[in-house]
Design a protein around this nucleic acid. Structure first.
Ligand SMILES: [Mn+2]
Ligand SMILES: [Mn+2]
Ligand SMILES: [Zn+2]
Ligand SMILES: [Zn+2]
Lengths: 140, 140
DNA sequence: AGGTCAAATGCAATGGTGTTGCATTACGGC
DNA sequence: GCCGTAATGCAACACCATTGCATTTGACCT
């Protein structure tokens, strides 16, 4: 099932309406290889001859984040679709510093190790975020 | 040697001037336990009866980041002093979601593991960033 | 110490990002 | 098809960050 279709199922199952703006945002995020900002999405939608208010885009992205369907990539100020669903407490990305291409990954051992280090430092860690940058194979 | 003194040595050695604004910013960052934003720093300086333009603060922080003396904490939008100098490509933080207290850490094995995963995914990783959140021992 | 000059700062203006309140629209259920 | 409520659009606003330019000042030299 595609990301858009899956997301629509999640929206319905949680009692949220499936509206044109939400479809448009999901579609823009699905197509993007690199993170897209709210204003990027605004432009993408315009290029298809349609229009969304930026407030709406912010609100939709906020909802999708809360449902873990999309992630905000802090180092880029943009949003990407979640490729690894059902990992609510662990979000790891490789981002190409050249073209912005992004890949999500996860690793059990990494999480364990990080939690151990945190424990040694007196922390109880709940949420792991990694945004490593480098070069994708195309940009090398 | 204190963070401020060390930073001043670095500034001098690279040919940058040691100015009142730069001293003030370094001092504010040194004292802070949690990340401070440019406007936080503006307020801190004012409370000492002095004044710095916010533009200057942005420029100073930009310089200090480029010298790896301070880091921007993306998940908090603030800046912290670097506790682990000479680790230019690896920046890892534990942040308390309650009080914002932050600790920097590093781990050789973690870096190796991440680089390997990146390689498997066709990336050449150069820069490791993690920001794990949870609760510090005081907030538990 | 004082003079010199490039680097750094302050100020004003501007642009970008994100939020809020409220009137209007449209989705989902009947 | 109608209804009620959730979602959207619009306007206004608050905050964050950057740019250009005139003025100041720290580092260096004498
Ligand atoms: Mn994910
Ligand atoms: Mn560091
Ligand atoms: Zn690339
Ligand atoms: Zn705490």
């Amino acid at each position: 099932m595609s990301f858009v279709d899956y997301s629509i199922r999640v929206l319905r199952s949680r009692g949220y309406k499936v509206t044109r703006p939400r479809r448009e945002v999901l579609d823009a995020v699905e197509r993007a290889m690199a993170p897209v900002s709210p204003y990027d999405i605004s432009r993408i939608v315009q290029q298809r001859g349609k229009h969304l208010d930026h407030v709406t885009i912010y609100r939709v992205l906020g909802l999708l984040c809360s449902l873990n369907l999309v992630h905000k990539v802090l180092s880029r100020g943009g949003f990407v679709k979640c490729d690894l669903l059902d990992e609510p407490g662990c979000h790891r990305f490789l981002v190409c510093r050249q073209c912005g291409v992004l890949q999500e990954f996860t690793d059990e051992a990494l999480c364990y190790q990080e939690s151990q280090i945190a424990r040694r430092m007196g922390f109880h860690s709940e949420y792991h975020l990694t945004e490593s940058s480098g070069l994708c194979h195309r940009c090398r």
